[in-house]
Lab assay of single mutants.
Amino acid sequence: EPLWIRPDAPSRCTWQLGRPASESPHHHTAPAKSPKILPDILKKIGDTPMVRINKIGKKFGLKCELLAKCEFFNAGGSVKDRISLRMIEDAERDGTLKPGDTIIEPTSGNTGIGLALAAAVRGYRCIIVMPEKMSSEKVDVLRALGAEIVRTPTNARFDSPESHVGVAWRLKNEIPNSHILDQYRNASNPLAHYDTTADEILQQCDGKLDMLVASVGTGGTITGIARKLKEKCPGCRIIGVDPEGSILAEPEELNQTEQTTYEVEGIGYDFIPTVLDRTVVDKWFKSNDEEAFTFARMLIAQEGLLCGGSAGSTVAVAVKAAQELQEGQRCVVILPDSVRNYMTKFLSDRWMLQKGFLKEEDLTEKKPWWWHLRVQELGLSAPLTVLPTITCGHTIEILREKGFDQAPVVDEAGVILGMVTLGNMLSSLLAGKVQPSDQVGKVIYKQFKQIRLTDTLGRLSHILEMDHFALVVHEQIQYHSTGKSSQRQMVFGVVTAIDLLNFVAAQERDQK
């Protein structure tokens, strides 16, 4: 057995438009009618409502009807409940999964919650491996369901041993009777949507819809739904939504950006999952974080739909894509998950301010006199920076000697690579993860907040409520011999709460 199987392995699926269902090699399930009293909570997966979006479509000038398939009504709160249950049931049916076995899954959280929910009911041990950027709410729900959680670096490539995929496979090879159901490759993922989600949409719309818009992560949702719609409703256009920084969209030119990270969760990847059939997507749109969270908040405030950030991405694209539809036509959007997962993220004004998705003037509360002053007023001194090749031991000596707790790590040209902190280095040394002679590049981390000289002290204040420091950066445009230009970030300084307090105190003292 291989040590790991690539999540982007070539698909062996034989589905073709027009091929009889009787030739399918898979076990198919028909939607079942729910009894009045459910035998367990797993029976509350599927049969989610279709809700008309009344205000947002009109606000953006849509002539067509805009409908939302509300997947956050599933038992675990997301569309991923469907595939989690289906993968477990299919693994039980073919004898792969037996009582007492362990389920391991690399996930952005929602599939993990679905699997942990099913594992709690069915009696399996469950280990979820997820990147650090995923919300604390997801972690809390997983723990409450009895799952064990392993976190991995957000910026690790999918084929790196440190990625959530790599760590999951390492655990599988170490733990007896453990299984990775593997949402990236498992046919049960798109089949769950082909058999149930798509049929529900067709039934709820009486077979009449002209466009379907869905955000894409593993691709199982859009693949399964689109294949069924292509068979039953061939005139329906399928629109895929991919965040900026991901590479799922086609044509490839759409993916060209210097951005590699994004805040919206559960969609987009740096590889093409095996289950994603991009041939059934008629057109791709890219979405960005700001519009995703703005539209998610709009869905909550104006439509009462308590959905997550990827739902915002989907609707932001839908109001663009559906401009081509006329009166009497219908566009369906998939709202994948609930706001429950993001209470401390985009639902929080403070978080939105820190990330730059909300401006101070958007909030009406009274601010102190210094709130709208610029960061450049602080008069920061030149920063202490270190090269990635310097040793951890030497870096600790320098920081202690100069009285700093942290320093930016830059390359020879001064471009920011990340940050090192005294606390992080000492804990890594004590844990045996690094040696004093190791290069400081081994303990770089990139989960820090950046701020510009033109940003306000109010925004800085919000950042420092949650973080010990902020890195002050400025952009530099560099022209190359080819005539092309590129933008790079340079370090201007490091600012802490002490710097802000000293500035405010000094100004008030001078005024007296």
Rank of each mutant, 00 (worst) to 15 (best):
V494F: 12
L353G: 09
R297Y: 00
D438N: 14
V264E: 05
K355M: 12
T314I: 13
A301W: 07
L422T: 08
F293G: 00
V415Y: 15
F492H: 12
D411Y: 13
T257F: 11
K345R: 08
L254Q: 06
C331D: 00
R297I: 05
F357C: 08
D349R: 02
D270Q: 04
H372Y: 13
D277Q: 06
R340H: 04
K442D: 14
L378Q: 01
V375E: 03
P368D: 10
A296N: 04
T496L: 07
V504A: 13
G423T: 06
M343P: 05
M490D: 14
S246T: 05
E508P: 11
Q323R: 14
G403Y: 08
G432N: 09
S310M: 04
T389M: 14
T456M: 14
M298V: 12
S348L: 06
E327M: 02
T364Q: 12
V375N: 13
T482H: 03
F448S: 11
V332Q: 03
E508A: 13
D438T: 08
K355T: 04
A321L: 13
V504G: 10
K367F: 14
I247Q: 08
V495K: 04
V409N: 00
L501W: 07
G266I: 00
T314M: 15
L457G: 01
L335V: 15
S428L: 13
T389H: 14
H474Y: 15
G356I: 08
M425T: 13
K449A: 15
S338N: 09
V415H: 11
A301C: 09
T456P: 12
S310F: 02
A407T: 14
E303Q: 10
M419F: 15
E361R: 12
E265P: 00
D362I: 02
E465S: 14
S486E: 11
V491D: 01
V280I: 03
R374S: 09
K442F: 15
T454D: 04
A316L: 14
D282I: 07
G245V: 05
A407N: 02
K320Q: 14
E258R: 12
V491Y: 08
W369I: 06
V280Q: 09
N341V: 00
V473T: 15
Q435V: 13
R509A: 12
L426D: 04
L373G: 11
F293P: 00
K286M: 02
H468Y: 08
T389D: 13
N424F: 09
Q476V: 08
I444H: 11
W370D: 05
L457M: 15
R452L: 15
Y479T: 14
K355Y: 12
Q323G: 11
K446P: 10
G379Q: 10
I463C: 13
P243C: 03
M425C: 10
H372A: 11
P336M: 03
I334M: 11
A296C: 08
S428G: 12
G328R: 15
G483L: 10
L460W: 05
M466W: 13
Q376D: 10
L453H: 01
S461R: 05
D510S: 10
F469I: 13
Q302P: 03
E290P: 11
I239C: 02
E361H: 03
T389W: 06
Y342W: 01
P436G: 14
D337S: 04
G268F: 00
G483Q: 14
M425G: 09
V491S: 02
L500I: 12
A322W: 00
D349I: 04
D405Y: 08
P388N: 09
V264K: 00
G356K: 07
G308M: 02
S428H: 02
A505N: 08
L430R: 14
M425R: 09
I334N: 00
G414S: 15
N288K: 12
Y342Q: 01
E250T: 10
V410T: 15
Q439C: 12
T385V: 05
Q256E: 15
L500M: 14
A311K: 06
T389E: 13
C307G: 08
K345I: 05
E327F: 08
V339C: 06
Q478G: 15
T395C: 04
L305C: 06
T294N: 05
E253M: 02
C331G: 08
I239P: 05
V409Q: 07
L464A: 09
L384N: 09
G432D: 08
T260D: 14
T344H: 06
P251H: 07
N502Q: 15
H394F: 13
F271L: 03
K359S: 15
L363R: 09
F346P: 03
Q323E: 12
F346L: 14
V386W: 04
I396E: 08
I498N: 07
F492C: 11
N255H: 06
V241I: 07
Y445K: 08
T385M: 11
S427N: 10
T257V: 13
S485Q: 04
G309Y: 00
S313F: 02
D289T: 01
Q406S: 05
C307F: 05
E377R: 04
A296Y: 00
K433L: 14
D411G: 10
D337K: 04
Y445A: 09
W371I: 09
L429R: 12
I498G: 13
Q323M: 13
L429M: 15
F492N: 12
E253H: 03
Q476E: 13
G458H: 07
Y262W: 06
R488N: 11
G309M: 01
T314N: 06
I477C: 08
F357I: 07
V415W: 14
G493Q: 08
L325E: 04
L460P: 05
R459E: 02
L373D: 11
K367N: 15
E412H: 11
H468K: 09
I390Q: 12
N255W: 06
C307Q: 06
Y342M: 01
G432C: 05
E324M: 13
G493S: 14
A318D: 01
S481W: 07
G418N: 07
P273N: 07
R459P: 11
L460I: 03
E291W: 09
N502D: 15
G309P: 03
Q259D: 11
S427M: 03
T260K: 10
R509V: 12
E397N: 12
C307L: 03
G308I: 00
M343S: 04
M352C: 09
Q302G: 06
G245N: 07
A301Y: 15
L353A: 10
V473I: 03
I451Q: 06
D277W: 00
P251L: 07
I267R: 00
V241D: 06
I396D: 12
L335I: 02
P273F: 06
R459S: 06
I416T: 09
T456D: 15
S287M: 11
Q329C: 13
L429F: 14
A470N: 06
L380N: 03
Q329V: 04
E475Q: 13
A316G: 10
V241S: 15
P243Y: 06
E327K: 12
K449T: 02
T391K: 04
D282L: 06
Q489D: 04
V315S: 08
R459M: 13
E397F: 13
Q302M: 15
P336W: 05
F271C: 00
L306Y: 05
G304P: 00
T456S: 09
K345E: 06
I416A: 10
R400H: 14
T294W: 14
L248H: 06
G432H: 12
G312R: 05
G245H: 00
V332W: 00
Q376R: 13
E253R: 15
L464P: 07
Q478M: 12
L464M: 11
G304W: 03
A413K: 12
E475G: 11
A470M: 05
